[in-house]
Each structure stands twice: as C-alpha cells, then as structure tokens.
C-alpha cells in the first residue's frame, strides 16, 4: 500500500517543525517569571484551594461525573429536608385542627362536669361521676422492713 507509506512519511516530516534554537532557554526564564507573578497575584484562598485539589486522588473520572455526584447530593438533601418539613407541618396542622378544647377561658357556655368526661362516657350517658382517691395518707404506708 504505497499510499499508506507516504502518509506515514509525510507525518514524520512534521518532526522538523521546531521553534528557534534559543527558544527553550527563554521558555524557562519566562516560566520562572510567570510563576513569581502568579504567586504575587494569587490570594491565599486560591493557593489553599489548589493545594486541596492537588492532594485529591488523581482519578480518571470525567468532570461531568463530579458535577453529577454534587447534583445528586444536593437533590438528596433537598428531598430529605422537604420530606421532614411538610410532613411535620401537616401533622402539626392536623393536630391543631382536630384539637378543640372543651374548656376555654373565654367560653360563654356554662361548663358542666360531663363536658370534661371522655367522649365514650359522654355518648353512653350511663357513667356516673365518681372520684377515686389514688393515694393513701402518709400514715397508712407500710413501714420498711428488711
């Protein structure tokens, strides 16, 4: 395939495209000058950020992958926060709505004992009011014995 040989030969000729001989000496000088200028120009925060980046492992991960990971993390955070907030708020709202106190200080309606009884007792109407003394007088307590 003479054509292929010619293509390779032609490409090899590009090796001769070189800068002037003293270019590389000037290049090093220019590199040092730029480095000094950069150090003077850059803020501490930028230098710190560069150090952090240079310490990070050098994975071959596309930059989009990093962006995707960050986006996922943000989305997950938003989801978690939104699940907590509306759920909690709605529960509180529901509680507020369902709670209607039988006794209020501003109520104009006269309050009876039955109003303070549980709903089941009020519905049945057969439960009579009674009081139970759940504690005993101190003098009735059993003396400690070992």
């Amino acid at each position: 395939m003479p054509k292929e040989i010619n293509t390779s030969k032609l490409l090899r000729l590009k090796r001769y495209e070189q800068p002037p001989p003293d270019y590389f000496e000037d290049f090093l000088f220019e590199f040092r000058r730029r480095q000094r200028a950069e150090l003077l120009r850059r803020s501490t925060r930028e230098i710190l950020w560069d150090r952090i980046l240079s310490m990070a492992p050098n994975f071959r991960v596309p930059q989009l992958a990093y962006a995707a990971i960050v986006a996922l993390a943000v989305a997950a955070s938003v989801l978690i926060v939104s699940q907590k907030s509306p759920g909690g708020n709605s529960l509180a709202a529901a509680k507020t709505e369902s709670f209607q106190p039988a006794l209020t200080l501003t109520s104009s309606k006269p309050v009876t004992i039955s109003d303070t009884l549980p709903a089941a007792a009020r519905a049945g109407g057969s439960v009579s009011s009674h009081y139970v003394l759940q504690s005993r007088p101190v003098s009735n307590e059993q003396p400690l014995s070992f």
Partner: peptide
C-alpha cells in the same frame, strides 16, 4: 504544537501545562 498547529498558542499552553504540573506535583504519587 502538533495538536494546535500554532506556535503562539503552543507557547502559552505549554507554560500553563508546566504551571499546572508544578501546582499538582505534591499530589503525584
């Protein structure tokens, strides 16, 4: 140079390449 086909671009880019390498060399394991 063979990627850019331009000497001026090559000069600037090569300066940036070495500057980046110098900044990142602490992370080179």
């Amino acid at each position: 140079y063979h990627m850019t086909s331009n000497h001026e671009d090559t000069n600037d880019l090569l300066q940036d390449v070495f500057a980046k390498a110098f900044r990142s060399i602490k992370g080179f394991q």
